[in-house]
Simulated scan of single mutants.
Amino acid sequence: MRYFTVFLLYLFSTTVFAQENTVKGVIVNDNNFLPIWNANIVNTSKVRGAISDANGNFEINAEVNDVLLISCLGYQSIEVRVTNDWIKNRTSRIKLTEKAYALEEIVIPPYTLTGYLEVDSKLIPERENYWYSIAGLTKRYEGGENSPNAFSRVMGSLFNPADALYNFFGKKPKELKKLRELKKDDNLRNILQTRYDRQTIYAMLGINEKELIEILERCNYSESFMKSANDLQILDAVSGCYEEYKILKKN
């Protein structure tokens, strides 16, 4: 009976340690050590998110060696790896450095307006992106600006997925599986809705700016979308393209 009890205790302890740990921390300004409110904490390994409170405190699910991307408007973003000591001590103080901003010159475009809406609306050039629908797929595709090869680019990328997208999607199956986890964490989705710097995307998918642009181009998203979309929209776009890539490649 004694051995049976010991065995049960061993199973219980193994189960507890196998569960996902929670780590806590406080984010402060490295200059004056004041707490930083509303900082974003993203576990790029587990696809989880958290936001620091008014006292700079946060709590997030993480395991040893998980990477946390910590960022806040006006501060330089940093990546922090979860260590055994952090798990053991349960909390850690993290310092962020303020960014130094340089004001850029503002250029006013040379449009001479008459004051009449009907006339002025024709003087300002308009960028128009065209969309295409493909039978069998629910999503419409952006073909970019009106050009002779816009439709051919859409069709070429769709029906040659192995050639067009394998170099990106075929080599990163583990990273791309994280995209499905986005739907499970409302905190992370709320964070990404307010971000436009793509740093979380680079860290989560293990890609750089050039590769992200090429992926979106291959998936036929326009330049205006790439510049104006927030990080959540970008990740949703990549996720949708990846799911359709798998379907087309399988077929």
Score class of each variant (00 low, 15 high):
135 A>F: 11
191 I>S: 03
91 T>K: 06
224 S>C: 01
114 T>R: 05
143 G>C: 02
217 E>V: 04
81 R>G: 00
208 N>A: 02
162 A>F: 13
10 Y>R: 06
246 K>I: 08
168 F>K: 13
126 E>A: 05
120 D>L: 10
32 N>H: 08
108 I>F: 11
113 L>I: 08
158 L>A: 12
176 L>Y: 07
155 M>W: 12
106 I>D: 04
144 G>E: 06
205 L>W: 00
6 V>Q: 15
97 T>F: 11
104 E>S: 11
166 Y>W: 15
201 I>W: 00
73 L>D: 13
161 P>I: 14
102 A>S: 11
15 T>V: 11
249 K>H: 07
41 I>V: 15
195 R>H: 04
25 G>E: 07
181 E>A: 14
125 P>G: 14
189 R>V: 10
210 K>Q: 13
198 R>Y: 06
168 F>T: 05
3 Y>S: 12
201 I>C: 04
221 Y>T: 02
39 A>L: 12
86 W>M: 07
156 G>N: 14
45 S>L: 03
88 K>W: 01
205 L>M: 04
165 L>I: 00
113 L>C: 05
45 S>C: 05
140 R>D: 12
150 A>M: 15
136 G>W: 09
226 M>R: 03
177 K>M: 08
79 E>C: 06
18 A>I: 07
35 P>V: 06
69 L>P: 01
73 L>T: 14
52 S>I: 05
143 G>P: 03
85 D>R: 07
194 T>F: 01
141 Y>E: 02
79 E>D: 07
157 S>C: 11
56 G>R: 14
177 K>A: 12
155 M>P: 04
184 K>W: 07
213 I>N: 03
195 R>E: 10
188 L>I: 08
174 K>H: 03
234 I>H: 08
133 S>G: 10
91 T>H: 13
182 L>D: 01
28 V>I: 15
46 K>S: 12
226 M>F: 01
230 N>S: 02
176 L>R: 05
222 S>T: 01
188 L>E: 06
102 A>P: 02
46 K>G: 06
174 K>W: 00
202 Y>L: 02
105 E>M: 08
71 S>R: 09
121 S>K: 14
59 E>V: 07
24 K>S: 14
145 E>G: 10
101 Y>V: 06
237 A>C: 05
78 I>C: 01
29 N>W: 03
197 D>C: 04
90 R>C: 00
61 N>V: 04
87 I>R: 03
237 A>N: 00
130 Y>M: 12
248 L>P: 05
13 S>G: 02
115 G>V: 08
163 D>K: 15
98 E>I: 10
178 K>L: 08
32 N>Q: 09
247 I>C: 03
214 E>R: 09
212 L>G: 03
172 K>N: 13
157 S>R: 11
103 L>T: 12
201 I>T: 11
73 L>R: 11
119 V>I: 14
134 I>F: 12
201 I>Q: 01
111 Y>K: 00
64 V>A: 10
36 I>Y: 07
38 N>P: 01
250 K>M: 08
45 S>K: 09
159 F>E: 13
118 E>P: 00
29 N>D: 15
233 Q>M: 06
